[in-house]
């Protein structure tokens, strides 16, 4: 139990500082560690937790609370949450301090780093989608739902919740036959 808690703390503290451009970028690494390295759950179970984390309020990175709960109960959930949010928050605090002290004069530096990190963040977001497809037994119906959701949500302003409900309905209907 203590071992699992330490593993959770170590894993998510590392992912916390590697989460370039937001929490989504670390999903592939998280999936690998949770499913392939520590065997806390299967690939489809990981996708199920991902789906739950996207349908609840708050930052999607709270998926770590569900992972922690699955691996080590309530204590696991809390340890995972603190490990995921504390290190990056301390960094954010230090940057905010530095920024206010400099009176915003670091703007040139900031714009350059922003330009360089933006494409990495875009790539990591796409990588998360790709890794999640690879990590699950994606059948034809699931591929159809993913493709439809990608196109619709890229081209229209449809509420993602509607698409999520539709996805569940399609897979239940496909299995009923």
């Amino acid at each position: 139990m203590i071992t699992v808690l330490l593993q959770l703390a170590g894993l998510f503290a590392l992912l916390s500082v590697l989460a370039v451009g937001g929490g989504a970028g670390v999903i592939p690494e998280m999936q690998r560690a949770v499913v392939d390295v520590h065997h806390w759950m299967s690939g489809p179970q990981f996708l199920a937790l991902f789906a739950l984390s996207r349908s609840a309020p708050g930052p999607g990175s709270l998926i770590v609370v569900l992972i922690g709960q699955k691996a080590a109960g309530l204590a696991g959930g809390l340890v995972a949450g603190v490990a995921m949010f504390a290190p990056s928050s301390v960094l954010a605090y230090l940057v905010a301090k530095f920024w206010h002290r400099s009176g915003g004069s670091a703007a040139g530096w900031q714009a350059r780093v922003e330009r360089a990190l933006a494409p990495v963040a875009v790539g990591l977001t796409l990588a998360s989608g790709i890794a999640l497809i690879r990590g699950t037994e994606h059948g034809w119906a699931a591929y159809g739902v993913t493709a439809a959701a990608t196109v619709v949500l890229t081209l229209t302003e449809l509420n993602p919740v509607a698409m999520t409900v539709a996805g569940a309905a399609v897979l239940l209907a496909a299995a009923g036959h």
Binding site: L47, R54, S128, A142, A147, T150, L171
Partner: peptide, 18 residues
């Protein structure tokens, strides 16, 4: 099954955000 469907949509959402 329902969560697999929601997950398939959520993957699409992630790709569309990217």
């Amino acid at each position: 099954l329902a969560l697999a469907g929601m997950g398939a949509s959520a993957i699409g959402l992630m790709l569309s955000i990217g």
